[in-house]
Design a protein around this nucleic acid. Structure first.
Ligand SMILES: NC(=O)c1ccc[n+]([C@@H]2O[C@H](COP(=O)([O-])OP(=O)(O)OC[C@H]3O[C@@H](n4cnc5c(N)ncnc54)[C@H](O)[C@@H]3O)[C@@H](O)[C@H]2O)c1
Ligand SMILES: NC(=O)c1ccc[n+]([C@@H]2O[C@H](COP(=O)([O-])OP(=O)(O)OC[C@H]3O[C@@H](n4cnc5c(N)ncnc54)[C@H](O)[C@@H]3O)[C@@H](O)[C@H]2O)c1
Lengths: 212, 212
DNA sequence: TTTTAATTGTGAATTCTATCACAATCTATT
DNA sequence: AATAGATTGTGATAGAATTCACAATTAAAA
């Protein structure tokens, strides 16, 4: 057990985030222990799924009792890498980039936005919500100096491919892309695409194909 | 073949959206036909995957030649339900709700934002980007009158559970939720959660667990 | 101390998903 | 008209993910 190096499926990792949220919620409710059944019930997973996911990383539960909540929170935070501060940059200070820069959920999860990049002369060389805004030309220099590790892409789709390529070249290994552009990337990089239109399109599909 | 009623996996439906984007892109590039290999290459799927996904809905290709692009675009739009206008409401005109209301990708995909709901007296009973902003108390009445079919949730997480419950009660069957709240919902409803913090947390996980 | 009830961790079974591999078929060329 | 080259559609196969089911263990009650 507890071989965190062997490839864990993305779906498992994504569920760990969900379990973590549930654990924090139940801690706030004043609970001390929680069972796999209860974690599952709150998220619509089976209890076996919850246990199997956790067992990829170790034996954290107590038979007959369940999981000690605050302890499992710490464990999951460590597994997910939330026991350190991540330095994040946002690319594109438009509607979406601005919203993301304000998003409380980031900082509280140790994702610290330390730089914003844009090309609009009206926006660069100022600060936005106390975060410095740089011209994209400064990318490599700022990334090196600030040790930025994660990039969030919110530039117009047209400029996304070039932007992402430059981010890869600068050595930022974690990228979250909100644009429509799809860019090939090296194996040791992580690039996740958030496809809002796609989400709505699958809702549309199921709305018309569920026999109401 | 072509049994659109038998349950199609979500993963297939989500890929259809991706194929559709690729088809539109290749049409703009001036292509007439495209092979499953090429669709796959542009998105990092195998050719067999592309063909099998499409074959769930019918035989659209020409052997030796590939798929006629404009025809397949129409077909996929019909399958996904993009051959009609969807009436969408956004709940919460904050940073994120405001960004979504401006998002071009929605309207171009036939998702028409016809109402915004908020509770802030400074925001309600005005318009935002020509979209009327209503007080949330008006939910049931406005939903009925405007025949709203899809809801996007961008209210603070604290008010999300109650908001979603009221949306379900009002009979809106398709819901896209951007908050942390997780709410049980009836079978014939579609509720998709977009979990931004979770996306970053899985990036964090893979950054520390890939043996660099 | 013994019994009862709860719950974990996990190998085995099952279900779901993706890939392989090839006959069938189409176009273009000779 | 025959041949070569490309590509589809799909049954069979392989692989991945989920669920089942139960021995093992713990806490609490009798
Ligand atoms: N608005 C939304 O809610 C939403 C939702 C999902 C996805 N998206 C996608 O996110 C992206 C941004 O959307 P938006 O609505 O914020 O657009 P926007 O036009 O409001 O903002 C784009 C910003 O990027 C800047 N920019 C342009 N080129 C740049 C470059 N090369 N480097 C750095 N910055 C650059 C612009 O100056 C502008 O400030 C788009 O690709 C869009 O499809 C938006
Ligand atoms: N900002 C982001 O980039 C971002 C990203 C991902 C998820 N989220 C989530 O989206 C939600 C909104 O985030 P935000 O940054 O836009 O917050 P915000 O505070 O800017 O906006 C919230 C809006 O909702 C309104 N509101 C409050 N109660 C309401 C109710 N009962 N009905 C209707 N409207 C109500 C408020 O008046 C405000 O206008 C939060 O749950 C947040 O976690 C935000």
């Amino acid at each position: 057990m507890a071989n965190t190096l062997r490839a864990i499926p993305l779906s498992t990792v994504e569920r760990l985030s969900i379990y973590l949220r549930t654990l924090r919620e139940s801690l706030v409710e004043g609970m001390d222990f929680i069972s796999s059944t209860e974690i599952g019930k709150r998220n619509d997973f089976t209890a076996a799924q919850v246990r199997k996911d956790l067992s990829c990383f170790g034996n954290f539960g107590i038979k007959g009792t369940g999981y000690q909540i605050s302890e499992l929170i710490n464990t999951l935070e460590t597994i997910l890498g939330l026991d350190r501060e991540w330095k994040v940059a946002i690319f594109g200070l438009g509607k979406l980039g601005g919203a993301l820069a304000c998003y409380k959920g980031l900082k509280s999860a140790r994702f610290n936005v330390v730089a914003i990049f844009d090309v609009d002369p009206k926006k660069v060389d100022k600060t936005y919500k106390n975060i410095p805004v740089y011209h994209s030309d400064m990318l490599k220099k700022v990334v090196r100096e600030k040790k930025i590790q994660i990039a969030i892409i919110a530039v117009p789709t047209d400029s996304a491919k070039a932007t992402i390529q430059r981010i890869i070249d600068a050595g930022i290994k974690g990228i979250l892309n909100f644009t429509e552009a799809r860019v090939p990337y090296p194996d040791e990089y992580i690039l996740k695409n958030v496809n809002l239109a796609g989400e709505l399109e699958s809702i549309s599909y199921y709305l018309i194909h569920s026999d109401l």
